[in-house]
Every structure is written in structure tokens, then in C-alpha cells.
Measured scan of single mutants.
Amino acid sequence: NLRWTSEAKTKLKNIPFFARSQAKARIEQLARQAEQDIVTPELVEQARLEFG
């Protein structure tokens, strides 16, 4: 299971509600691909840039 830093959680809250669950799934996918067990603000930002 993935842990989220408080900064990453804050960044996730800045994503519009309607896109948040999809973004969260993508962020967690990116973390797993990078073999990380902690979601960082950088991963959230990477996903945000993908979504535009």
C-alpha cells in the first residue's frame, strides 16, 4: 500500500474534484512504476502535467 506525504495530499486537493479520483489512480500508478512506496509532490505534479 502506498503512503502519501502531507505535501502530496495537499497538491491532490488542488486538483478539481471531478478529476481527482482519476488523477489519484494515475499518481499511484506512476509511483508503482517508479517502484516507490511513498507518493511525493513531484509525482502529483507529474500527473497534473499529463492531465493538462
Rank of each mutant, 00 (worst) to 15 (best):
A34N: 14
N1P: 14
R20N: 03
V44R: 00
N14G: 08
P16M: 02
P16G: 04
Q29V: 08
A34V: 08
T40S: 04
T10W: 09
I27T: 06
F18G: 07
Q36R: 11
E35I: 05
Q46I: 13
P16K: 04
N1G: 13
L49C: 08
V39P: 00
K9A: 10
E45R: 06
Q22W: 13
L2S: 02
W4P: 00
T10D: 15
E7R: 07
Q36N: 06
K11E: 08
L30W: 08
A34T: 11
N14A: 10
I15H: 03
Q29K: 08
L43I: 09
K11Y: 09
R20T: 04
N1V: 09
N1S: 12
T40G: 06
P41Y: 05
Q22T: 10
K13W: 09
Q29F: 10
P41Q: 07
K9M: 14
L30M: 10
R3E: 09
S21L: 13
F18E: 11
Q22E: 10
F18L: 08
E28S: 02
T10R: 14
L49D: 06
F51I: 11
L12Y: 06
R26I: 11
S6Y: 10
Q46R: 09
R20I: 04
A23Q: 04
Q46K: 11
K24V: 13
Q22C: 14
A47K: 01
R3V: 13
V44P: 00
L12T: 02
E50F: 07
G52M: 15
I38K: 04
R3A: 09
L49G: 07
A31P: 00
L2Y: 03
A19G: 09
A47D: 05
A31C: 09
K9Y: 11
A47T: 05
G52K: 12
S21P: 10
N14R: 10
Q36T: 14
D37F: 13
I27Y: 01
Q33F: 08
G52S: 14
L30I: 08
L49Q: 11
R26E: 05
E42R: 05
E42M: 06
A19S: 11
F51S: 06
T5K: 02
Q36S: 12
T5A: 05
W4L: 00
T5G: 03
A47R: 02
R32M: 09
A8E: 00
A25N: 10
T10F: 09
L2Q: 02
N14D: 15
N1E: 14
K9D: 07
